[in-house]
């Protein structure tokens, strides 16, 4: 019974991911695209939970959906009509090439996965109940992956500074 439930939840979440993903890419109104992305993030959070990554699921919802997407929506609102994004063209060669590239990547990954499935992708490891808990993740951050932790914080600092710089009012002579 539990297995079936998990499967159903998985299928729903997966469908949600895919549907919202396609929506993000194809809608012409960026506001709707952003909302679709929020949905995508929520579906992903469900999938994270299924994979015993509780902390990460929470972080995803709080940080990504909560903060980052709100930023997006703010900007869309600021831009107003200028943000409209019709499906404008571009050289047809470009469009074909894009599709081909994406398809190639996809096919390639699927093939590799298929080749490795039998050996590597069955029998996941047994994990304790605290796998994916904030405590354990935090412990790793501060011991094995301290460098990553610190560098990430520097990246965030740079982004903050950059954001401020970009947001400065242009000088008077900088008229368009």
């Amino acid at each position: 019974m539990g297995n079936v439930l998990v499967w159903i939840i998985w299928l729903l979440a997966a469908a949600g991911c895919l549907a919202t993903g396609v929506a993000v890419v194809s809608l012409t109104n960026p506001f709707y695209s952003a909302l679709a992305l929020i949905g995508n993030l929520a579906s992903l959070a469900v999938l994270f939970l299924l994979l015993s990554a509780e902390f990460l699921a929470a972080a995803q919802v709080l940080v990504y959906a909560g903060a980052v997407m709100v930023m997006f929506l703010f900007v869309v609102a600021y831009l107003g009509g200028r943000a409209d994004a019709p499906w404008a063209g571009g050289p047809p060669l470009l469009r074909t090439a894009a599709v081909v590239a994406a398809a190639a990547l996809l096919v390639e990954v699927v093939v590799v996965l298929g080749l490795a499935w039998g050996d590597n992708l069955t029998d996941p490891a047994d994990v304790s109940g605290s796998f994916g808990s904030p405590g354990e993740v935090g412990e790793l951050f501060l011991t094995d992956h301290l460098l990553a932790f610190e560098i990430t914080s520097i990246v965030l600092l740079v982004a903050a500074v950059g954001g401020v710089v970009l947001g400065t009012t242009p000088e008077k002579e900088d008229a368009a």
């Binding site: 894009a98 590239a101 994406a102 190639a104 990547l105």
Partner: peptide
């Protein structure tokens, strides 16, 4: 100068690299 063509080029490059790695 078209950014998109650069992106496509990168995608193809990644494709090739993955094949090589595998």
């Amino acid at each position: 100068g078209l950014l998109r063509s650069y992106a496509i080029a990168i995608a193809f490059a990644v494709f090739v690299l993955v094949v090589v790695f595998v």
